[in-house]
């Protein structure tokens, strides 16, 4: 729309030019939404933990037996 363009004029300050210096600033890492876990993953992790516990207890029992 060329007619509209001609209506809007840029505004320049008459006195005292404003300028800004762009200084690079340090960046923070972004906040992190934690992903939810799928049912399968939760089950896998649970099973693995239980298995580890079981093995640990077995080893403890073996140690006691050998002593």
């Amino acid at each position: 729309m060329p007619e509209v363009k001609s209506i809007i004029r840029e505004v320049l300050p008459k006195q005292g030019q404003l300028h800004m210096e762009d200084v690079p600033t340090m960046v923070l890492c972004k906040p992190k939404l934690l992903p939810l876990k799928s049912v399968t993953l939760e089950k896998l992790e649970k099973m693995q933990m239980e298995a580890q516990e079981a093995v640990k207890q077995q080893e403890l029992a073996m140690k006691e037996l050998s002593q």
Binding site: V27, K30, K32, P35, L36, K37, S38, T40, L41, L44
Partner: peptide, 22 residues
């Protein structure tokens, strides 16, 4: 990447983890 964190494989982090996305 400036807005959304990435995983180390270069994908934006997802809202949901499955065994395969791990």
């Amino acid at each position: 990447q400036a807005v959304r964190p990435m995983t180390q494989s270069g994908r934006p982090i997802t809202g949901f983890v499955r065994p395969s996305t791990q």
